[in-house]
Amino acid sequence: MSSPHGSPPPPSTPVRPSFAASVSRIYNLSFGQMLWSRRTVFMVLVVGGPVAVALILRMLVSMDLLDAGGVIDGRPVTIDGPVIFGLMIWGFYLSFSVPLLGVFYGTSLIADEVEDKTITYLFTRPLPRGAVLIGKYLAYLVCAGLLVLPSVMLVFFVVMPLLGGSIGAGFPDLLKDLALLAVGLAVYGALFALVGALFKRSLLTGLVFVFGWEPIVVVLPGYMKRFTVSYYLQGLVPHAMPQDGTVTGLVLQVLQANEILPSATVSLIGLGAILAGGLGLAVWLVQRREYVLEQ
């Protein structure tokens, strides 16, 4: 029997957005949130500090308080713009900013939503769970990149011409540094996205990895250092690793002499594997894990 007015229109079936569209939506949502959160203070410290130090150094040089030649611990050393820039890339960015940003943002991609008890709202939307993680990860990458890379650029132009250095001569190294930092942010972010998805106390795990495991293992002989990110980053870094005056003992000299840095190819393969493995496993975990929020 049919109705005199015809059959009622079928209920509209919700259109599930594609994975890429879901990623894009989450990215758009998260990018602004990340940029204008309390973390911005931390970000300003991380990216503004090196620029401030670079300006101070430039001021010292212009006031003739800093010259190229000198002696450290009885060793004659020559410091110029490229050397200072190399020191800053190592000291500020590769050893500090990139791993710390990776830990902070990477572990908080999911943990923040759990902590704020807002993950329910995200996971009840018709979006693949993996897209939520990937979208947030991309937002972190762009957010960190847009703040860290210009900071490096400013430091380069402030520091490089000091004490006889040349911007033109150092430009190829700058390109390598920028690429290296972008890769570092991507790899550390992926690794700690996995840590964040895997552990409840992910931040402590991340800090132990970055400031406990990596600095110790990377100077040990054998295969242990292959289980760090910094080992593979060192294989790509254009600046020679600066020697710390406090650790130039016989043991370290022998270790350095025997240390074999990975080739650029091995480094890229290693970093690629960590990136793909970390992100893939994180997505896999997020898709399967049941998040029970604490009341």
Binding site: G49, V53, I56, L57, L60, L66, G70, V71, I72, V77, I79, V83, I84, L87, M88, G91, F92, S95, F96, P242, D244
Partner: peptide, 12 residues
């Protein structure tokens, strides 16, 4: 620590 290390390297 990083600030001190950089300034130490630059100022010897």
């Amino acid at each position: 620590g990083a600030v001190f290390a950089i300034l130490r390297g630059a100022t010897r």
